[in-house]
Amino acid sequence: MKKYLKNKYFWVVLILFIGTLILINNTSSERTNISLLEKLIRDAYTPLQSGVVEFKDRFGSFNAYFSSKQLLQQELDSLKEQNQELTMENQLLREDKMEVRRLRSLLGFQDISLQKYEMVAARVIARSPNNWYRNIVIDKGSDSGIEKDMAVISPVGLVGRVASVSRDSAHIDLITHREIAVGAIVQENRETQGIVEGLGNSNLLRMVNIPYYSTIKPGNNIITSGLSESYPKGIDIGIVKEVELQPDGILLSALVEPAVSFDKLEEVLVVIHYYPEALSPEVNDVE
């Protein structure tokens, strides 16, 4: 033992070991900001990762380019983008339509709220490099107004939340992440509220805190309830696969398959602002 205590390497290793454990502990919880070193490392990768996506895009349109169909390709890209926006808008309109229909039945209810979104489109340029944490990296960061905890969606549904931001990129935690919890409701019956959590080790989600008398059943569509601060109301989360009674016998839980296919995500929308807005006079006239 004395031999070890006299060895300077023993003390260096011991101090490094304890220091690292403290570092792990300090970075295990959510941080408001990442360090300058982390930002520098991420920003060094962003142009390279964006270059790979750019290369893939160009390679994809290689044939079109050489057969003098470049304009057609541009038009196709623009239409694809427009289609994504319209799909997103359609999803929101469907939700609004159901809300208006429901409110029509409530005579005298005037204060209808619709939400308005301000979004930034971003490309997925990288994914988690290891098996332990699954996330994605997008090519927009604080320079584009993106901040930590903003909701990230796609035309198909909810993707996740901004985990950390550097100047030109942002790391996004997917909704399958263990630390993410989203307030949710069943779109069909509107009565069932619960919390959707990531399971961490699979691509499935679990909806918990569902009252035992709920009519929730497989095939139901789960959407955001708007009760979570970060997530706007009415965004598709997924479809119920299984419903089971929790061990306490009072609550139900449901296994939910996410609406978004995370492996195929190429573009996402970051919700910069969303705010409820009073229904415009034109809509009141319709009433």
Partner: peptide
């Protein structure tokens, strides 16, 4: 191994030191 793991941890930004150790 420590330096490579630390670099990987800094890129990921969570639980910095787990890969390093």
């Amino acid at each position: 191994g420590f330096l490579c793991g630390l670099f990987e941890d800094l890129y990921l930004g969570r639980f910095i030191g787990v890969s390093a150790l």
